[in-house]
Design a protein around this nucleic acid. Structure first.
Lengths: 444, 444
DNA sequence: GACATGGGAATTCCCCTACC
DNA sequence: GGTAGGGGAATTCCCATGTC
């Protein structure tokens, strides 16, 4: 009996074709085979940090993972290179999904696309220059209801290999079930890493020729907790240095418990001079896609001329930022007049009782202030291209936003949308992307 | 054979207990029994016109249908009365769901609640005063995927009753299937009518004692095509008489293809003096819950003092309106100055090429202008109660919204939210509801 | 604690636009 | 016609808060 089961296991593991060789290629089981070999995998092009995972029901192709340096005109794709490999045997690279953890585990989600099999393993032959490029890698979202079952089956299989004959008598099956439920809850379904592994075939068996490597995390664009932060439109792009100006901001889905609006200023070298956070409560976040906030006061409320800063969305949980939008602080005019006083009287806003945004000493933010650099407006050579024809239908759309503020002297700032400015505001951005951005016109 | 089947049918229809007597109680099949009897059902209290239908998966109670006159302090419920009935036999009233059509058909959705059975029939005994009140009526939303099957089975049953023995040989079964698919597509799943029917029991059989009557339609609050229209918040509540002021409006879910923003003015008697529609495109509707629009010009662009009008959302498809919000048109100042000229230059907005909103001669709107009256601000005796303590945390929330506009003379309008104003703006509103509303303060 | 009531949001699925 | 990319509808889930 014991031997018979062993035979079966053997056949399951080794007699399969290339399409479904061993279920767990990127794990411990292959580690020892490459411990003493010099060959090493390098990631030449990381995947983008975000893609919309697709459900099985969303049939058809919806575009694959591009590379982090991909752009509209020049698409790139995740690419790996095998170094220090000198044999002539054809090498294959296999990609598969793992969890985004320090010690990645096989994920329940699957890669899908041209070179992928049912298990979510995508195999591409290494080209002559030892490079493999993965075009058309999609991520299949496995419904959360299926997760416990999948984990349970995996656990059983592992158990099976170790204790073959004890299974049917195993008294801990129930606890395995419970463990699976727990693990399922813990599994982050909205972030994955791609595992790349190089191997060769010999006698219908595969041998790893290097250690597996993992890509940077790829988040699910559709999830509100990991989707891209984006300011779509704002009410106004300027306000008084004293702050407390109400601004309507339209954005892509955010989690009202996990979102801040950050104002910051940089010098011409891109170093951060100042930052502060806007005031708003959870109740000011309208159905995840609009926020009504109050501007924070500028560090110097007595400025004599306008100062340009930036606004951006910020998600403390994962440190993500949206692109910044220019915002102009304008000098205070004279003193508070009658209107302003009346206003104060009926506004309880400044009591700040319900504020979820903190200024300055916010725990979640410490550490990122000043330890990174910004590309300033000044050193972008693209700035000159701005409001002309290619954007004609957008001009006036992000349109003219008057924001004179309790001043007898009128001061307006116009904002015009422009699509072709390279800018780099977020601390964790490794490189400037081709982004939509804005310039500010002053009219006095 | 023929007789045997008849027996079966007989048993199916009549041998059931009160809980599941005949599947289709409100239809033609009962009409003749009451043709010559005087007893008549009257609806004393109609149901609210909207409730959130619940899916089967949303277990638990989520609050039932209230009456149209229900309020927080005094809840009412759908209520019917049987008139001209003089027998002593106990009468029961049964409620069930029908389609919202001129000739209502049994709906696939079901009533659920305390007195309801599996088929969605709710039965309540008539009280001594010949009145029956239905508390706790919920509407169960039957998933659209199940609809064709249900209709198919119903059709089969009907066929069965009529042509008993021909069924298995019926060559048109396929066409019945197709017909069901078609009917399923046509069925409006977001609007129902409640059918009320009075009957008595005798010898385990039920007899209708009056014709069935139907309630007014009850729409699904959750559907963007039938949900309540509501302006949640606006950017500013005033603008120049010349129009073209950009306003950000936050609202509850709307369908961008089926929504208009209506400006209208009433005289002190509530008669409509003027209306016009705001300019915006589908692209200006942000994820169903925010709209950036341009105000229409006021009918007289040369007004010398501010004019108060109202803004409201309008859904042409079903003629629904949101509550109106006050909006103030302000006099034009001097002439267009340099700023304004620059502004015109870069703004293409007025070309109107893509506008989906029409001014004045809009086909979908004809007929409602002027044939109804409004309750004006002036004749509401509740207007005085406004910005005090009960709303303290809301004050300054709808806050002060400065909207001076290209003028050296400053003019601001503040809007303060108030919860206790009875107002009645929409043409189809039968009565004033307790609504959130707004007043406008002028500060010069 | 269990349920009632009301809501918001997450999950899943469908289908529309561009653009080849 | 298919790919690539999105928007949003349909469905499910779950959270506050209040009440028994």
């Amino acid at each position: 009996m014991f031997k018979w089961i062993l035979v079966v296991v053997y056949r399951v593991v080794y007699s399969h074709s290339i399409r479904n060789i061993s279920r767990c290629p990127c794990g411990q089981n292959l580690r020892n085979s490459s411990r003493f070999s010099t060959p090493q995998l390098k990631i030449l092009e990381q995947p983008t940090n975000r893609i919309r995972y697709r459900y099985r029901s969303e049939k058809g192709s919806h575009g694959g993972l591009t590379g982090e340096n991909s752009s509209q005109n020049k698409k790139t794709y995740p690419t790996v290179k095998l170094e220090n490999y000198h044999s002539t045997a054809q090498v294959y690279i296999r990609a598969s999904l793992y969890t985004n953890e320090e010690r990645p585990k096989s994920h329940v989600h699957k890669l899908m696309g041209r070179h992928c099999n049912e298990e979510g393993h995508c195999t591409v032959p290494l080209s002559d220059n030892m490079i493999a490029t993965f075009q058309n890698l999609g991520i299949l979202f496995v419904g959360k209801k299926e997760v416990p079952d999948i984990l349970y089956r995996r656990k059983l299989e592992e158990t099976q290999v170790l204790h073959t004959s004890f299974i049917s008598a195993n008294p801990s099956l129930l606890s395995v079930r419970e463990e699976s439920e727990r693990d399922a809850k813990d599994m982050n379904l909205n972030s994955v890493k791609i595992c790349f592994e190089a191997f060769v075939y010999e006698n219908d068996m595969s041998y790893a020729v290097s250690s597996p490597i993992f890509s940077r995390p790829v988040a699910n664009q559709k999830s509100p907790d990991s989707g891209e932060l984006k300011i779509v439109r704002m009410d106004k792009y300027c306000g008084p240095a004293t702050g407390d100006e109400e601004v309507f901001l339209l954005c892509e889905k955010v989690n009202k418990k996990e979102i801040k609006i950050r104002f910051f200023e940089t010098d011409s070298d891109g170093h951060q001079l100042w930052e502060s956070f806007a005031n708003f409560t959870e109740a000011d976040v309208h159905h995840q896609v609009a926020i009504v906030f109050r501007t924070p006061p500028y560090r110097d409320q007595n400025i004599k001329s306008s100062v340009q800063v930036y606004v951006q969305l910020f998600r403390p949980r994962d440190g993500e930022y949206s692109e910044g939008r220019p915002f102009t602080y304008k000098p205070k005019e004279h003193d508070l007049d009658g209107v302003e006083k009346k206003r104060r009287k009926i506004s309880h806003y400044n009591s700040g009782v319900e504020d979820i945004s903190n200024n300055s000493n916010n725990g979640g933010n410490s550490g990122f202030v000043g330890n990174h650099s910004f590309t300033s407006l000044a050193d972008s050579s693209h700035t000159t291209q701005s409001s002309r024809d290619s954007n004609n239908n957008n001009i006036g759309y992000y349109g003219h936003s008057s924001c004179s503020h309790d001043s007898t002297k009128r001061e307006n700032c116009l904002q015009i949308k422009s699509n072709h400015l390279n800018r780099n505001y977020g601390p964790n951005r490794r490189k400037a992307n081709l982004i939509e951005n804005s310039i500010t016109l002053f009219v006095n």
